[in-house]
């Protein structure tokens, strides 16, 4: 099986003061094993609802979600789904359970009923993987937001999931903390080949992704490689998203008649591209 998550004709409705809202509208989506997918969308676009359906926290109103071939509707296999797809949320403070870092990371494996020595190994490995091994015995409330969020990630990867779904994990962090998290995720994806689904509204976080999805009003309106998706500056702006500043610059230059390739995203590539077009003229 190539896909870790398969979403088939899924809609999600909720009732709020007697009116029915549709947060997710008839979505079909497959997440490839080992891929790094970013889902972009502004508040209320249905991206969080979709994320919570990926590990059975939300059950679809219509359609089915399969994780590794298991339907998330089955009550009996709920734990199986959750140990395959781990989830990290926005506020790191509200995800940590214990007041000592390593005990918190051990929480998931302990719930799985593993042997103490196995838990010990997994905790040490997980803390090392997020670069927090030296803080094993600290208390979470003395750490920075980015560090706390890395502990939350360690707590999930200690369960050795195949896929990591993160719902705006950087929204409450400062730029430094945000960078830490994205670097950690990119490393986990490359080195441990953990599938990553990152939900965010910061476009620059999608730079190195394999695939970018843009959601608006419960629907997927764009799907492709970051360089392709970011080309569509007008569409992205119309749904309240900001394209990366580099793309915007190239886009503006192109409109003024310069021959530049607007698919460059990183600052280095953009600079090269601009230099090239100047020397040409």
């Amino acid at each position: 099986m190539d896909n870790i998550i398969e979403i088939k004709n899924v809609s999600f409705e909720y009732t709020d003061e007697q009116t029915v809202h549709t947060a997710v509208k008839n979505i079909n989506l497959n997440i490839k094993r080992g891929s790094f997918t970013v889902i972009l969308g502004h508040n209320g676009s249905g991206k969080s609802t979709l994320a919570k359906m990926m590990n059975g926290l939300n059950k679809p109103t219509f359609g089915d979600v399969f994780v590794d071939g298991i339907n998330t509707r089955d009550e009996e296999t709920e734990i199986e789904v959750k140990r395959r797809v781990g989830m990290v949320f926005q506020n790191p403070d509200n995800q940590l359970v214990a007041s000592i870092v390593e005990e918190d990371v051990a929480f998931g494996p302990e719930n799985l009923g593993l042997e103490p020595e196995v838990i010990r190994q997994r905790v040490d490995k997980a803390l090392k993987a997020v670069g927090m091994a030296e803080f094993a015995n600290s208390t979470p409330h003395r750490l920075s937001g980015g560090q706390k969020q890395r502990i939350a990630i360690a707590g999930i990867i200690a369960m050795e999931p195949e896929c990591l779904v993160l719902d705006e994990p950087t929204a409450m962090l400062d730029p430094k903390g945000r960078r830490e998290i994205i670097n950690t995720l990119e490393r986990l994806n490359k080195e441990k080949s953990i599938t990553v689904v990152l939900i965010t509204h910061y476009m620059e976080e999608a730079e190195n992704a394999d695939r970018v999805l843009v959601m608006n009003d419960g629907e997927i309106i764009e799907d492709g490689k970051p360089s392709e998706v970011f080309q569509n500056v007008k569409l992205l702006k119309s749904v309240g998203l900001d394209v990366p500043q580099t793309t915007e610059l190239l886009y503006a230059l192109k409109q003024k008649g310069f021959s530049v390739d607007t698919s460059k995203i990183s600052i280095k590539d953009t600079a090269k591209e601009i230099a090239k077009s100047f020397f040409k003229e």
Binding site: N55, L57, E102, E103, A106, E110, N111, V123, I156, M159
Partner: peptide, 15 residues
Amino acid sequence: ECRCYNGGEGKTRMK
């Protein structure tokens, strides 16, 4: 819930 907590059933301890 995402960390497979189900009320301590079959839970082990690291320490």
